[in-house]
Simulated assay, not measured.
Amino acid sequence: MARVLVLYYSTYGHIETMANAIAEGARSAGAVVDVKRVPETVPREIAEKNHFKVDQAAPVATVADLENYDAIVLGTGTRYGRMSSQMAAFLDQTGGLWLRGALNGKVGAAFVSTATQHGGQETTLFSLITNLMHLGMVIVGLPYSHQGQMTLSEVVGGAPYGATTIAGGDGSRQPSEIDLEGARHQGKLVAQTAAKLFP
């Protein structure tokens, strides 16, 4: 069975919800899945004052955890069209893994959240995917086999590069069922791909 890590950073819980949907999809394809988060870099008193979701069920990952998986799916909210500083700080510590080629040939994927439809979803996905490719990973996106991303009757997330959701400027919009379907679909594809590469 393929081992999949869903590794995320979520300030307000939107990406946490998407991470659990990615995991659900991967498990539906028979993978063993762990959901973990990167460390928070904002002091707790500031995070609480700004209404961060500070109590999340997922354990905090270490860089050493990464090489124990056949596939790694990264998720984060967008910061000015790129990944959050928390996720960047974590990935900046993977130089040793890169040097040893520890993740070469493994499966990588990405998912994100933005405040608005045009808030940088695709550039943020690529900011994650670029790191995964430098680490030697094989990328799985969200193909149009998830046709929900083509919906025009409502606001939906989704891009061929990964699952996405839109939180709204005040964070009040939660991932829709179509957004969650996209996340589950991508998770399933990641697990299926990993199973083929690591039978």
Rank of each mutant, 00 (worst) to 15 (best):
T62R: 13
A167N: 03
L74P: 02
G136M: 12
N68K: 13
N20H: 15
P160M: 03
L132P: 11
V155G: 00
I139Y: 08
L99C: 00
G141T: 07
V60C: 01
I129V: 15
V156A: 01
F111T: 08
P39M: 05
T164I: 02
K196T: 12
S84Y: 08
V32Q: 15
R173M: 09
H118T: 14
A163F: 00
L66D: 06
E16G: 07
G158K: 04
T11L: 14
A115T: 10
L142V: 06
S172P: 01
G30N: 10
A110L: 07
P43E: 13
L97G: 08
N68M: 05
V190Q: 07
V156S: 01
V6L: 03
S113V: 14
S153C: 00
G105V: 08
Y8S: 02
A71N: 09
P160D: 02
Y12E: 04
F52D: 05
Q186M: 15
G182N: 08
P39W: 08
S153G: 00
N104P: 00
G168K: 03
I139L: 04
Y144A: 02
Y161C: 00
K196Y: 09
K188R: 15
V54R: 08
R184K: 13
R79D: 10
I139N: 11
I22C: 07
K188V: 00
T130R: 13
M150H: 03
Q192A: 14
A57W: 03
L189F: 10
